[in-house]
Design a protein around this nucleic acid. Structure first.
Lengths: 108, 108
DNA sequence: TGATCATATCATAAAAATATAAATTGAAAA
DNA sequence: TTTTCAATTTATATTTTTATGATATGATCA
C-alpha cells in the first residue's frame, strides 16, 4: 500500500466512524445566516438583540439558528440580567471559519 | 474598539460578504456519505465502482453525491477508458477534514 | 453493429431545513 | 403584583435534501 502522508492516512481511517457526528457539526455551520452569526460572535460575545441588529436576521429565525448551534455545541450562552449572552463554545468552529476565510476571501 | 486578534478581525470583516458561497461550499461537505466519499478520495483518486464498494453508498446515490461535489468544485474527474476517475479538486476540502479529524477523532 | 458495462439522469416520495406570524415564557421594573 | 421586555416556542407553509427504482447514455468489446 502506498503511503502518501501520515495525516491523510490517519484521517481516512479515523474519520469514517465519526462521519455522522462530523457531518452534523458541519451542517450546523453550513448556512449563510449562521455564518454571519458566528462571524459576529468571533469578535466577542453578544446578546440576541445585538446579533439581530448586526446580522439583519429576523428574531424568530435568530432563535432557531442559535438553538441549532447550541444543540450542536457550537455556541453556548449565559444569562445576564434579562438578556442572554451567546458565545462560541467550540474551537473547531473558528478553525473552520479560518479555512473558509483563507479560500474564499484571501485569494489575491 | 478592542482588537483581540488580527486574524479574527480580518475574518469577521471579510467573510460575511462571502457567506453565501462559503455556506454552499460547507453544505456540499456536510453529509455523512459525502464525507465517506471524500475520505476515500483523500487516499487517492478512485473510479465510481471503487467508491461504491469502499463506502457502501448505492450507485444512484453515489452519482448524485458526486454531482453535488462536482458542482461545488470540491471534486473533479477524468475519463479513463470507460470508467470515470474522480479526485479531490479543492484543497479547502482536505483542510476542513483535517479540522474535523482533530476535533472528532484525535481527542484523547 | 450489436451487446455490454460503467455511470448518469429522470421521476418520485419521504424527510429535513428555513422563514414567518402568533402565542408563550420568565426575569425584572414600575 | 401587574406590566414590560428579551427571547423562545409553536404552528405552518415552502423549499431543499436525500434515497430509490426505472430508464438512458455513451464508450468499448465481441
Amino acid at each position: 500500500m502506498k503511503c502518501k502522508d501520515a495525516l491523510v492516512m490517519e484521517l481516512t481511517d479515523a474519520l469514517p466512524p465519526r462521519a455522522d457526528e462530523a457531518a452534523a457539526f458541519l451542517k450546523s455551520l453550513a448556512n449563510p445566516h449562521r455564518l454571519l452569526i458566528l462571524c459576529a460572535l468571533a469578535q466577542g460575545e453578544r446578546n440576541v438583540s445585538t446579533l439581530i441588529e448586526e446580522t439583519g436576521v429576523a428574531p424568530t429565525s435568530m432563535s432557531q439558528h442559535l438553538s441549532k448551534l447550541k444543540d450542536e455545541g457550537v455556541v453556548d450562552f449565559r444569562r445576564d440580567h434579562r438578556t442572554l449572552t451567546y458565545f462560541i463554545a467550540h474551537p473547531a468552529a473558528v478553525e473552520i471559519m479560518t479555512v473558509l476565510y483563507a479560500h474564499f476571501c484571501a485569494k489575491d
